[in-house]
Design a binder for these strands. Structure first.
Lengths: 228, 228
DNA sequence: CTTCTTTTTTGATCTAAGTCAAAGCGCACT
DNA sequence: AGTGCGCTTTGACTTAGATCAAAAAAGAAG
């Protein structure tokens, strides 16, 4: 598939016409990253921003003791690293490719020119940043106002919603990464999944999880407690 | 002071020329809110967004048990409530005026037209949302990766930076609100301030706080522990 | 000044979840 | 099939910080 087709499938560039699309294609740098390879580090000077074409990129913060809080997994079609483009300064978090990924890089200066000329590009970017703000709001809420069982229940329901909604789902990340995303540690995830299983809320076979009692999960997610 | 002057002082509208400024002024609704009065609630349908002219607005989430996590205090010149404008859907958090506040409201549809016509308005908005994303990133980091003493130390150093940097500072919010901002409760704030005092890091007289040992505060903020 | 209300502090207790350590599994690869 | 390495689970223990209750201070209002 040609670059133009790939670019035209990126939500950020939806609604762009042929000529503008060509301009975008002209400035893109096509990059490949292996599993575990960093795309950028927190505090680095930003020369531009990125869009995932294929693979997956983990966006995360690191504590002084090495604990990591995952902010987001950027999936194909999603952009990341735009904050310094518009706010100045440096990257506020780390980005690492967690599988073989193809990534488009857009240099800052040229892209800013494009966006200033093209209202629909600006609107798309505003929508993208707004959705990210909403996601962050939810993350803050979960970290601060819910206990770990509630966060985990919410995540399972979310995964179910993303999937076919049948109640059968497959974790697309390791439980360690899930812990990093939910602001906890693998042991805690393991214990809580065990508890959910023994209470009959779910059934776990490796990474396959079946939701058996959606109501109880909703209750947990809404702030309810386990009734031992 | 006329509306035009007030609008022209809002960072979001910097760089707009006379004619465009007039258009903005034409669509603004000038509103006043008393202390404790809600501006909007989470989940409400959004008809537009807001800018604080004077006073202060608390943006926050509420847990099912009534605990509140403050996301931000919007100060004069700052906008809030834009997410649904660009991402669709509803307000992701509550907004409440915590003192007598004058607030400009901008209706969604008309503002979207303006922004599509005016690249500098779009760029300003992109910058604003980006800075907010950066702030949220920091909030997530603090909630998830730092203990409460570290968050508090970071906040004191931040306040000192915002002020004259002399080491003398005055909390502009109650300690209860500070607790809500740092993801904890007033008792904990009280105890930690007490500990910091007894270790000679700070001196507290009501809301006036003097930083005595900045290095120790920096250490705490960077993840260090109290050495009893 | 006196009376209320709102904040702040202090003490005692409880608990969710982190830490440390050790098995146990499962998958990838020769 | 066997060998390793990374992932996951389990158990014992520790701890930061929440909860509950009550007193003390500090403001605000008459």
């Amino acid at each position: 598939m040609g670059i133009v087709d790939l670019v035209s499938e990126i939500p950020l560039f939806h609604g762009l016409h042929g000529e503008q699309l060509e301009e975008v294609v002209d400035i893109v740098a096509d990059q490949t990253f292996g599993r575990g390879q960093p795309v950028f580090s927190e505090g680095e000077e930003a020369a531009g921003f990125y869009v995932v074409v294929s693979g997956r990129v983990k966006i995360f913060k690191l504590s002084s003791e090495g604990k990591e809080q995952i902010l987001h997994f950027a999936e194909p079609g999603e952009s990341f690293g735009e904050v310094p483009m518009f706010a100045g300064g440096r990257f506020p978090a780390h980005a690492e490719s967690i599988e073989k990924s193809r990534i488009f890089f857009f240099p800052r200066a040229v892209f800013l020119e494009l966006i200033e000329k093209d209202p629909s590009l600006a609107m798309n970017m505003l929508a993208e940043l707004s959705m990210r703000l909403r996601r962050f709001t939810r993350l803050v809420e979960e970290l601060s106002l819910k206990e770990v069982p509630g966060r985990l229940a919410a995540y399972l329901l979310y995964l179910n919603g993303r999937g076919d909604g049948s109640g059968d789902l497959e974790l697309d990340i390791t439980k360690g990464q899930l812990a990093g995303l939910l602001g906890t540690i693998p042991e805690t995830i393991s214990r809580i999944l065990g508890k959910m299983s023994s209470l009959g809320f779910i059934r776990v076979r490796g990474r396959r999880i079946t939701l058996l009692d959606r109501q109880s999960l909703e209750d947990l997610s809404a702030g309810g407690k386990f009734i031992i």
